[in-house]
């Protein structure tokens, strides 16, 4: 398992953007969760998770995103999911993730 990959992150003022990529769907995706939590802990007001390179999200990916949502809720950080494919968007809606996050194009 490749655990040495770098998580792409961009900071714009009080907003942090984390790029999920396809690593989200493996146990190594916990690294993405840790990076999101690190951004939350550093005090960003809004955390954007970008899915532009994420084709599908499986159950592991959903579980990891729930961990991010939980951490953000505890810290009062707003979560935004951006560039989510239509299929993934449907899945998030069906599972209720969209109750906790703002969806952006």
């Amino acid at each position: 398992m490749n655990t040495n990959f770098e998580i792409p992150v961009r900071n714009e003022g009080e907003t942090s953007i984390v790029f999920a990529s396809d690593y989200l769907n493996k146990i190594s995706g916990e690294k993405i969760e840790r990076e999101c939590k690190r951004q939350i802990e550093t005090g960003c007001k809004t955390l954007v998770v970008n899915f532009k390179d994420t084709e599908i999200v499986n159950s592991i990916g959903v579980s990891i995103l729930l961990g991010v949502i939980d951490a953000a809720a505890n810290a009062g950080t707003q979560i935004v999911f951006s560039e989510v494919s239509e299929e993934t968007n449907q899945l998030f809606e069906m599972l209720g993730l969209t109750n906790h996050v703002k969806m952006a194009a």
Binding site: S59, I60, G61, V62, S63, I64, L66, L95, G96, L97
Partner: peptide, 9 residues
């Protein structure tokens, strides 16, 4: 555990 939690969110 990830799979179980993620399957039903």
């Amino acid at each position: 555990l990830h799979l179980l939690l993620g399957s039903l969110a």
